[in-house]
């Protein structure tokens, strides 16, 4: 019988992220220069089979038809995969959320709209529960030594500090924070350990680290040193630079709890 440890060892989650544009998976560097990375449903199915713990789909399509096409895509994904998945991109209302959850998504990721209208967080949490509200924060370390919140896919700087915004979001009912360091995203030089640890240690909700994962040691670092609950990456998985089973074996070798 396993030891009945008082603090549970939830598995650290490995989350491939699929950026979707016009129905295809794309991946850019530092939020620009998009490359095609294949059919999202096929990729999603592959990742589920390989042992991904969860998936995130971020729709960056800018057409007026996007809502309907996204809902259709969510249905196709939900039919195929047997692990949880989060959908984000352009969600502006509780109604948007109910369409996506009704199509089979488990959680929604909100970013710019939540910053501009923080009550959106509370509204979704009330309607569907905190557990399905993933607040995405794109943040950049500036010369003054502070991490600032950026909006609109990293194009618009705000005066808000990442830590303050995350705290406020928790109070409003956010269930998880998806933290992307713009300084690290696309660099493959490792995750932003300091801001990830700061949030992870201070917030009563899980923190998903994103941006910069380039080799297996980076994932060890973000779990061991930065106390992230989950780590998200895109291109290293899409372009098969790191295989998820290999990554999990590597983490297990460091005593990090992973689902194998």
């Amino acid at each position: 019988m396993p030891v009945a440890n008082t603090i549970s060892a939830l598995a650290k989650r490995i989350i491939p992220c699929l950026d979707i544009k016009d129905g295809r998976t794309v991946k850019g560097t530092n939020f620009v220069e998009l490359r095609d990375a294949g059919d999202p449903v096929e990729l999603a199915a592959r990742y589920a089979l390989e042992g991904a713990d969860e998936l995130v789909f971020l729709d960056i399509t800018a057409t007026v038809e996007r809502r309907k096409t996204l809902a259709d895509l969510v249905k196709r994904i939900a039919h195929r995969i047997n692990i949880p998945f989060t959908v984000g991109g352009g969600i502006r209302s509780v109604e948007d959320v109910s369409v996506l959850l009704g199509s089979g998504a488990d959680k929604v990721s909100i970013n710019t709209a939540a910053f501009q209208n923080p009550e959106l967080i509370a509204g979704i949490a009330k309607a569907a529960g905190s557990q399905c509200v993933v607040l995405a924060i794109d943040t950049r370390l500036e010369d003054d030594g502070e991490w600032y919140v950026y909006l609109n896919g990293g194009r618009t700087k705000t005066d808000a500090k990442c830590f303050e915004w995350a705290k406020k979001a928790v109070d409003l009912g956010a269930g998880e924070i998806l933290l992307t360091s713009m300084n690290h995203d696309g660099t493959k030089a490792g995750f932003a350990l300091d801001i990830t640890r700061r949030l992870s240690d201070a917030l009563p909700i899980p923190v998903i680290a994103s941006g910069g994962g380039g080799n297996m040691q980076h994932f060890v670092d973000v779990f061991q040193d930065a106390h992230a609950d989950a780590a998200l990456a895109a291109s290293i998985f899409h372009f098969k630079e790191i295989a998820i089973p290999d990554l999990k074996q590597h983490l297990k070798g460091y005593g990090i709890p992973v689902r194998i």
Partner: peptide, 16 residues
């Protein structure tokens, strides 16, 4: 809360 080992509620994730 104090770093690792705290109990986050809701429990979200994979447990055994």
């Amino acid at each position: 809360k104090a770093g690792e080992g705290i109990l986050k509620v809701p429990q979200v994730g994979w447990n055994t």
